[in-house]
Amino acid sequence: MDMVQTEKLVYEYEKRDEEGNVIGMSRAIDEVDIDVKEGQFIAILGHNGSGKSTLAKHINAILVPTEGTMWVNGRNTSDPEELWNVRQSAGMVFQNPDNQIIGTVVEEDVGFGPENLGVPTDEIWQRVEDSLKAVGMIEYRHHSPNKLSGGQKQRVAIAGVVAMEPKCIVLDEPTAMLDPVGRKEVLKTVKKLREKKQVTVILITHYMEEVVDADKVYVMDHGRVVMEGTPREVFSRVDELKNYRLDVPQVTILAHELKKRGLQIPDGILRKEELVEVLCQLN
């Protein structure tokens, strides 16, 4: 089943001058067709200003298409009647953990979402407990979110979304502000959620290492999808990615470099284990 599907999605906004007069239109998304199946892990890459965050905001109807259609869990996001259903199907996690936490105690923050959905109190507590366990933060349930590290805050933010039991979670650069271990924590949490709850995950990131496990990668440029495929397919096209201001994981660069220097190394190496294996066989 399709979880997120778009058909020629266009998003335009008005450009205004200092007096607020409209001086033209700007197209942030230009006829995008994407198709995400239930339970998939999808990554979206693209440089700053390529339109990836604008696209993400369509998935839970923060923005609605100017032209074309977006369906989330079979519901048309342009239909005002479906707004709450769409938002219950897709939850979002943003870059800055400090902007997403509103509660003064961790469990209160996580309960905020389901409370707004009108979930009965007993069930709210159950969900809070389940989602804090799912992100590995249950021992912090009575703590103040202020005192947590960046990675921990981001896990609480994810728990807050999980407690709303969405079928799909969109993460917009969730690790950009974190240290390496915080980054690892968040990714591990996302992986666990996929395994335990079969949630569909759409991850937007600038860290190429984070997408090697994705089922599919979309690359955006100027509001259009310019590349799509498995991580191996996409990361084999190093030069093309560089043109789109992107990069490949460091291990892929090293493999590429060694190949240029004459070693027999296959294209599209993504994990350090693969490269180590190949090199040990050459040795």
């Binding site: 390496p180 271990v181 460091q250 090293l254 350090k272 180590v276 090199l279």
Partner: peptide, 23 residues
């Protein structure tokens, strides 16, 4: 470094893995 929230560059790990495998 990992114990204190940090890491080494990916290539450093690759070299350590190669050394462990006897290279």
């Amino acid at each position: 470094l990992e114990k204190v929230g940090l890491a080494a560059p990916q290539v450093t790990y690759i070299m350590h893995d190669l050394a462990k495998r006897g290279m």
